[in-house]
């Protein structure tokens, strides 16, 4: 008798064999792409109008926060508004991935119960969907940038690796919260508070340079902080990202 093609054994410590799992994940990439596409379609099913909302939503949100900033600080300039919009848009890439990722497995229902595929695919496609919802808003950012008369430069191409970093972070968060939500179904209810806290701890409503010296430790505890600081430098001020300063900081170098 020939060797079996496949053997299912009890999981060791609740985990499937990792190497096999990853190769299965890779072999299912076409399914993942099609699944993400269908999910994207479902979320803005009003076709043309749904896509308008995709852009209108973060735009309205940034208008509301701008109002808040003007009222609190009494004044605001163009760069401030540019910073707020750019940061808020990319911040919502991450929070959207967290919210969608958390639900991805628990709402997978029939698909999870009735077909064999690596479950990791679900939070992964949730993160991909968030990325594709974010990308059209980049166009809005560019238009805003021009309207506000902010500087343009080739250094803004640094946005591309930064978006990749943001996506990687969003992906990690989506996977983490997907797992948490399987074991604690009410984790979903905590997520809005969590993302709101993260928003206030991140340089979105304020610029990183405006952080008071006694609050500098925030830079060390919030993984979004360096990313958002670099993003704002690149996208708003058309400067080089200050990654070296953060890398030095990370290793305690001067």
């Amino acid at each position: 008798m020939s060797a079996p093609l496949e053997v299912f054994l009890p999981f060791k410590g609740g985990l499937p064999p990792l190497r096999k799992y990853l190769s299965q994940l890779y072999s299912r990439r076409q399914f993942m792409a099609a699944f993400a596409r269908s999910e994207l379609r479902r979320q803005n099913y009003g076709s043309a109008f749904g896509q308008v909302w995709l852009i209108l939503n973060p735009l309205l949100l940034s208008a509301v926060y701008f109002l808040l900033i003007v009222i609190i600080s009494g004044h605001a300039d163009k760069a401030r508004y540019g910073h707020l919009t750019a940061s808020l848009f990319i911040f919502y890439l991450v929070t959207d991935a967290i919210v969608a990722g958390a639900k991805s497995i628990t709402s997978g229902g029939r698909l999870v119960l009735n077909s064999a595929f690596p479950r990791l695919m679900l939070p992964m496609s949730a993160a991909v969907v968030s990325l594709f919802k974010f990308l059209p808003t980049l166009l809005v950012l560019v238009v805003f940038h021009a309207l506000l008369g902010l500087p343009f430069s080739w250094t803004m191409l640094w946005a591309i690796p930064l978006i990749a970093l943001f996506f990687l972070f969003a992906l990690g968060c989506a996977i983490f919260f997907a797992c948490v939500n399987v074991y604690f179904r009410d984790a979903q209810n905590l997520i809005p508070y969590l993302t709101r806290t993260l928003l206030y701890l991140s340089p979105v409503l304020y610029e990183a340079s405006a952080l008071k010296s006694n609050l500098q430790f925030l830079k060390n505890i919030n993984p979004m902080y360096p990313l958002l600081d670099m993003w704002s430098r690149v996208m708003v001020h058309a400067q080089l990202p200050n990654c070296t300063s953060y890398i030095k900081r990370c290793y305690g170098l001067p």
């Binding site: 093609l5 053997v7 299912f8």
Partner: peptide, 10 residues
């Protein structure tokens, strides 16, 4: 996954 025992597919 099985809780115990094994399943072999040919």
């Amino acid at each position: 996954p099985p809780t115990s025992g094994r399943v072999e597919l040919f």
